[in-house]
Amino acid sequence: MTQQRSTSLTLNRRGLLGALGGGALVAAGAGMTARNADAAPEDAAKWASELTGGRNPVDDPRVAIDLPPIAENGNTVPVTVTVDSPMTDADHVTKIHVVAEGNPNPGLCTFELTPACGKAEASTRIRMARTQNVVAIAELSDGSVISGKKEVKVTVGGCGG
């Protein structure tokens, strides 16, 4: 009896989760359309390709962006970019570009690293106009370009205007 009851409970929960997931997908789709109308992700991609000399970055889990999930004040959002790299003379990160997809200007900053850094990690504080993705693009000494992405929700934008 108990066994049966628990099975039906699980089924119900699964059905409910499925419905919720579907709703979330629709909401995400609507958000995407609104963002595309702004053409900001395209600007960001263009900016990034200029910085890297036309080399297309490949998504790679070695690039990690540490950002608060919700930034209450868009005027100063702490950001840390870490790239998993041994930082030796033969294999190191030369540049890390940080790009915003929803700011008036897509560029945030560029860190230029050397093997003397010992660890491919740098932090700063940035201004975010609204909820958007932050993209980090790392150029490696072997010529490859890898990237990572993270969304930050902004309560009050911080770009003046």
Binding site: N75, T76, V77, T80, M87, A100, N103, N105, G107, L108, C109, F111, L113, P115, A116, C117, G118, K119, E121, A122, S123, T124, R125, I126, R127, M128, G158, C159
Partner: peptide
């Protein structure tokens, strides 16, 4: 886009 009074942190060996 970098905030006023820029804070920069990095590593060295």
């Amino acid at each position: 886009a970098v905030s006023a009074n820029p804070y920069i942190a990095f590593f060295q060996r």
